[in-house]
Design a protein around this nucleic acid. Structure first.
Lengths: 183, 183
DNA sequence: TGTTATTTATGAGCAGGTCATAAAAACAAA
DNA sequence: TTTGTTTTTATGACCTGCTCATAAATAACA
């Protein structure tokens, strides 16, 4: 292996390792990849990977924040529909695998459904979920969400998530708004 | 207010504030409660509340671990049913409120459903969710889960969650096992 | 008034970094 | 073999958000 390929291979591995376990410190990564801590830091900055503490905070905010992750919003029409790109890099996965848990997909869908009706807080009455295909950590997903019906403060919102044009996940929520966000 | 009551009141408030938002640093807490940072630190150690970074890590680990929270398991019969007590103290809530998010309830239910069929990893095909009543952070919930049907590796599992005898949440999962855990 | 609980301040030390800089090593091409 | 370039490693100053120990200031109460 030439110098450049070695570097590339290592950086790829770095991404995988941190993707698998964001709770690895530079020192631990250095041991794993058998290079110096300085190299790990260099690689991280080249790859735009944040430091240990910030990664941890991201994961925590993700799970605890009030607003909820709606991904990168490409299109959005309040009370109508929207399109988002979801990055599954820090979604919860099953032990020793890269398979994203249903609960992570559900959380995405719920966040999107709430966002499209501008609900800071809403009671979900019913949720019907269909998992069509296995999602893996790192998959780049496109979510389309749409308000299908409104009656009083009762909404029906659909969320459909695709990867490479093929549908992975579908959800239908019946929501009743209790508290609208000022626009 | 005497000296001791003032202290007690402040410490109670401290617990509430951190409970509501674990992402508060001592400096921010000091401003909120209008005391010095030193006092906050003293209060924290007296109350056994861990420091900012450790709190964040706790939240992150909680959300990122592969196993999933199944609460305190009171009764459990593999492939049949079980009963758990769920502590909602660190469930995700809506902004500025104590209302537990649907996604937190869903995650509990999914974890329970997976545990009862001994599935380290499983594909959920369908989930039907009914939210009957609002759950608040701190509510002590009792969850009963039961395998209703099995055919090949296809399971139907029900999860019902109650608080004080009244039903709060109901879920039905259709799961297909892909990887059984050794017993 | 002094005594005592409570609060605040100060300084050293730690983990896990950033950033800038420099030296060393590895390799490719002349 | 020597030179040039990339890649890796090392070093030191600085940062945040703490802990821990110690001391000083403030306030409550008898």
């Amino acid at each position: 292996m030439g110098r450049a390929e070695k570097k590339r291979a290592r950086q790829e591995r770095l991404v995988r390792e941190i993707g698998k376990n964001p709770f690895l410190k530079d020192e631990e990564l250095a041991k794993k990849l058998k290079v110096s801590v300085a190299t790990i830091r260099l690689d991280r900055t080249e790859l735009g990977i944040r430091e240990y503490r910030e990664r941890i905070r991201d994961v925590a905010e993700h799970s605890a924040d009030g607003t909820g992750d709606c991904g990168e919003v490409l299109d959005f029409n309040l009370f109508h529909d929207g399109i988002s790109i979801l990055n599954t890099l820090d979604a919860a996965v099953f032990e020793d695998s890269t398979v994203v848990k249903g609960q992570a997909m559900y959380a995405y869908a719920e966040n999107l459904a709430l966002s499209v009706i501008n609900a800071k807080s809403a009671l979900i009455r019913v949720a019907n979920i269909k998992y069509l295909r296995e999602v893996n950590r790192g998959d780049r997903l496109v979510a389309k969400y749409e308000v299908m019906r409104v009656k009083n403060s009762e909404y029906v919102v659909w969320v459909r998530i695709k990867k490479d044009m093929s549908e992975m996940f579908r959800a239908k929520f019946n929501l009743s708004v209790t508290d609208e966000r000022e626009i």
